[in-house]
Amino acid sequence: MSTGVLTTGWEPGVPAGDTIIRRFVLAYADRIAAMAARVGGRQKWVEGARMADLGSPFGYDNAVVVTRPLSEGEWPDVVAAADAFFPPHRWWVVLSVFPTPDLRAHGLLRVGHPPLMLRPPAPTPPPLPGLDVRAVEDATTLADFQAVLVAGYGLAEVGVPAIADLALAGSLLHLRVGYVDGTPVATAGAAVRHGIVEVDWVATLPQARRRGYGTAITAAVVDVAPDLPSVLIASDDGHAIYRRLGYLDLFRTTMWEHPPS
């Protein structure tokens, strides 16, 4: 009988492609670090986590991504490192695909447990009649992307997300805007890393919802690499949309936030 110890899949040196979940974690961590580098932000590796500060007023742009399971005794050091890394006034979040202890004693607030969803490679629905989907490639399309994202997420009083930067569009992020009769109504974006399409920034203007625009704009970014699986973290509003597009529920992640002071 073999006495070898099976890998957990999270030790140093395990290939990124070991599992879909490992691909997602590393893709997300690498993506936020690359975004920080492009927009003049900062990044830091600590044992078990990667941090990126994009200097954004929108907390989800400033993140700590947990890159392996942490014991309860390791969490205080990770949170302390994040506290030292981010400015005191910064709104930032912690994303973990692994269970976490209660971090309220460390000054964090629980956001919730959004579902992680997977869509295997498969044909997407045909383009939706009446929705003109365009790539963000100039100041005009970027401004439209920003306006829809801010309105769709209710960020008008928060400020401009870091995503609203042409330095990120094209080679790093694939951003799309959907127009109806020339008016921007929906957005979505994707990054392709570690053999997956990581989908994010899906938003539809409140007055344009329940017309299929969210499904169509998500399909458009899935199609940037149609032969790869796509993975996303779903909001409550978007959960049903993604299911209709063929996404499967894997499990719920955990998200904490450090609100701005």
Rank of each mutant, 00 (worst) to 15 (best):
A29R: 01
A162V: 01
V14K: 01
D61G: 14
A240K: 14
P15F: 00
A220F: 05
G246Q: 05
L149G: 06
A225V: 11
P115L: 09
V133I: 12
V133G: 05
W201D: 14
H106D: 15
A147R: 15
P101H: 13
L131M: 13
V185M: 09
L250A: 11
D249T: 15
E137A: 15
V192Q: 10
L95Y: 15
H194I: 08
R210D: 09
T215R: 13
A49F: 02
T218I: 08
D227N: 11
R252A: 15
P126T: 06
G13H: 00
H194C: 06
I233Q: 12
A164W: 00
A52M: 03
G238S: 05
A151T: 13
P161L: 04
L70W: 05
Y247T: 04
S261E: 14
D18Q: 14
P114N: 07
R31F: 11
G41T: 02
A162W: 00
W201I: 12
G152W: 02
V192H: 11
V185K: 03
V202Q: 05
A234D: 03
D236Y: 09
S96R: 00
G13W: 00
D237S: 15
P127I: 09
V78F: 03
A36G: 06
R42M: 04
G55V: 00
R22P: 01
D223H: 14
R211N: 10
P161D: 02
P226A: 09
D165H: 05
D61F: 11
T187A: 05
D77T: 13
G170I: 13
P99G: 08
T218G: 03
P126S: 08
A186T: 10
V148C: 06
P120Y: 11
L116M: 14
S235R: 11
V111E: 13
Y247P: 02
R119N: 02
G182F: 08
V136H: 03
A52G: 01
I233K: 12
P120G: 12
D77W: 15
A27H: 00
W10A: 01
A167L: 04
A147H: 08
R23D: 01
A147Q: 14
D165E: 05
Y60P: 10
E157M: 07
A33G: 10
P184N: 12
D181H: 12
A164D: 02
G112I: 05
L155H: 12
S2Y: 10
S171M: 10
L131D: 11
T8F: 06
T183H: 13
